[in-house]
């Protein structure tokens, strides 16, 4: 599923790296615990999280993830967005809660990520 479609479905705002909206995500993972995220297998995964600090971006960076979606109206600090911009990670921001955002994406065909 293209990030552009995800943006539409979640009525999300793009906070940086809009040029990645053509990127095709093959799966998604949703979590606020970064060590759980770090056990992800595929890099074509996107991360949905309510953790809006710089470590969410660092985690995505280590895994070569191309997109983070911050949920439940929690807007990250500019420093967080700045780091994501520098690392080539597209940041989306949605009003939906984690559960609802996942439900919307899942029911539209995006599957969960495999673990290692």
């Amino acid at each position: 599923m293209k990030l552009g479609k995800i943006k539409e479905l979640l009525e999300a705002e793009v906070l940086c790296n809009e040029e990645l909206l053509d990127y095709e995500a093959v799966s998604a993972f949703a979590c606020d615990l970064m060590s759980d995220v770090l056990s992800l297998a595929k890099k074509e995964t996107i991360l949905l999280t309510g953790l809006t600090n710089v470590q969410a971006v660092r985690t995505a960076e280590m895994l070569d993830l191309r997109c983070i979606i911050f949920v439940r109206n929690k807007r990250p600090d500019e420093s967080v967005v700045e780091l994501a911009r520098e690392k080539g990670i597209c940041v989306l921001f949605t009003k939906y809660t984690l559960f609802t955002a996942c439900g919307i994406l899942y029911s539209n065909g995006l599957k969960g990520a495999d673990m290692l």
Partner: peptide
């Protein structure tokens, strides 16, 4: 640490894996 997204007890196992 949990509030910062860590402390889930997966750190050392993840490193080993």
């Amino acid at each position: 640490a949990r509030e910062m997204g860590f402390g889930g007890g997966m750190g050392l196992p993840n490193m080993k894996k």
